[in-house]
Design a protein around this nucleic acid. Structure first.
Length: 102
DNA sequence: AGTTTGACAGCAC
DNA sequence: TGTGCTGCCAAAC
C-alpha cells in the first residue's frame, strides 16, 4: 500500500461484502487498471495488511487462486461465508460475484 | 535503471 | 475436461 494503486486495490478488497467474491481482474478494473489482474496478485501477496478479506478475491472462472500457499484455508473461509467450493472451484461463482455486473 | 518475479487471464492444443 | 503457453502489469531485486 505504499503506492496509490496498491492503496486503491486494498481499499476495494476491503469493501467486498461477506458471501460475495471478486476476481483479481475485477479488482484491477475497479482500481482503474483493467488487465492488471496479475499485478493485483503481486500486491496482495506482499501487502500483508491484516483485517482485509483477501480470501474473497479469487481467480477467473471461480478458481480459487492462491492464498499464501494455503488453498485449503481459503476454501474453508469461503465455505464459512456460505459459498460452496468443489474441486477448487466456487460453485455458481457468477451469482456470488461482486461487484454486481450490469 | 534493467531484470526477474508472481495470490492472473485467455486461448491454443 | 485438463494442461500449457503467451501476454500483461506493478513490485521487489
Amino acid at each position: 500500500m505504499t503506492t496509490p494503486f496498491a492503496r486503491r486495490v486494498l481499499g476495494i478488497v476491503g469493501r467486498i461484502p461477506p458471501g460475495r467474491v471478486a476476481t483479481y481482474g475485477d479488482v484491477a478494473r475497479a482500481a482503474g487498471r483493467p488487465g492488471a489482474a496479475r499485478a493485483v496478485g503481486t500486491i496482495m501477496r506482499r501487502a500483508g495488511a491484516p483485517g482485509l478479506p483477501y480470501h474473497r478475491v479469487i481467480a477467473a472462472g471461480g478458481r480459487l487462486g492462491g492464498y499464501g500457499g494455503l488453498p485449503g484455508l481459503k476454501a474453508a473461509l469461503l465455505a464459512a461465508e456460505g459459498l460452496v467450493v468443489r474441486r477448487g472451484r466456487v460453485v455458481r461463482f457468477a451469482a456470488h460475484r461482486w461487484p454486481r455486473r450490469a
